[in-house]
Design a binder for these strands. Structure first.
Lengths: 154, 154
DNA sequence: CTTGAAAGAGACACGTC
DNA sequence: GACGTGTCTCTTTCAAG
């Protein structure tokens, strides 16, 4: 995938605000509307653009608790892993799950309403999954930075 | 902020695909176009909807390295903290930064091109910030789940 | 790549019930 | 809240340079 300066400009602009009209976008990046539209369409079709989405203020919808949870899975065997990931994918409170290198196996990002529902999540949703032997929770006190704009290289 | 079932339906739909037209959205949630438009507008104005954005495939733009880095800041004093956060906010590779409870002070999510540029980031951007005494890196091997759809309660 | 034209669709404000 | 109307803007396609 090779992106030129125009493609990068389009991606940067769309990351900041995807509700921009093609007309404004073309003006912004310095292309004609037709060329701009064709590029945007192409970026979607080739999968560079995966999705257009909406960022919601978590606190305003009552999600006051964000936590990053490290999980050690044991034994780390195929069937245990598969079942774990299957469960994780079905739990809406788990926003993200990563396999990580090192002493802990998985990193989860979890959003819940409050401390009580967080506790319920840990006890009733997470610890009940077979193989989850040890967890290490990092509770978010403040979000200091959060951007969806990836560092697109020049 | 109190959201009824229609508001929640709108938010859920817009999280999945913000490029949906107001016409289709109104059909989906079972409201008239005018009522639907007024609600969406209201959600934007009250800040529940913060942003419309675009999700990009990191790998397709050459970002192959994602890491979560725990940072201990010492001394944890006002001026050290302020300068640290100022620097963090100016580094594009840092996508997210959270203040966390516990033994580590900050959690960063970082995206770089490869191992080499990751190393450069650690040495030249992160470790040079005054107060950054200890870091603990968790390198992402695989993204098992990643959703931008918050668990909106019924 | 650009410009220009033309048709279709949607946004959005305005009334009415 | 629903519905209809009208206007205006943008989208989208398709020419030709």
């Amino acid at each position: 995938m090779s992106l030129d300066q125009y493609d990068r400009a389009i991606l940067n602009a769309l990351q900041k605000d995807s509700s921009i009209s093609n007309l404004d976008l073309s003006k912004l990046i310095g292309l004609s509307t037709s060329a701009c539209l064709a590029r945007t369409k192409n970026l979607r079709e080739t999968g560079v653009i995966k999705q257009f989405t909406t960022v919601i203020d978590e606190k305003k919808i009552g999600l006051d608790m964000i936590a990053f949870i490290m999980v050690v899975l044991s034994p780390l065997k195929r069937d245990v892993v598969d079942f774990f990931l299957e469960q994780i994918n079905s739990i809406p409170q788990v926003l993200e799950c990563y396999t990580i290198a090192g002493s802990r196996d998985y990193l989860l990002k979890v959003a819940t309403k409050d401390m009580q529902s967080y506790k319920d999540f840990i006890l009733d949703s997470l610890m009940v999954i077979p193989g989850v032997s040890r967890i290490e929770a990092n509770i978010v006190i403040n979000t200091d930075k959060r951007t969806l704009s990836l560092p697109i290289e020049e």
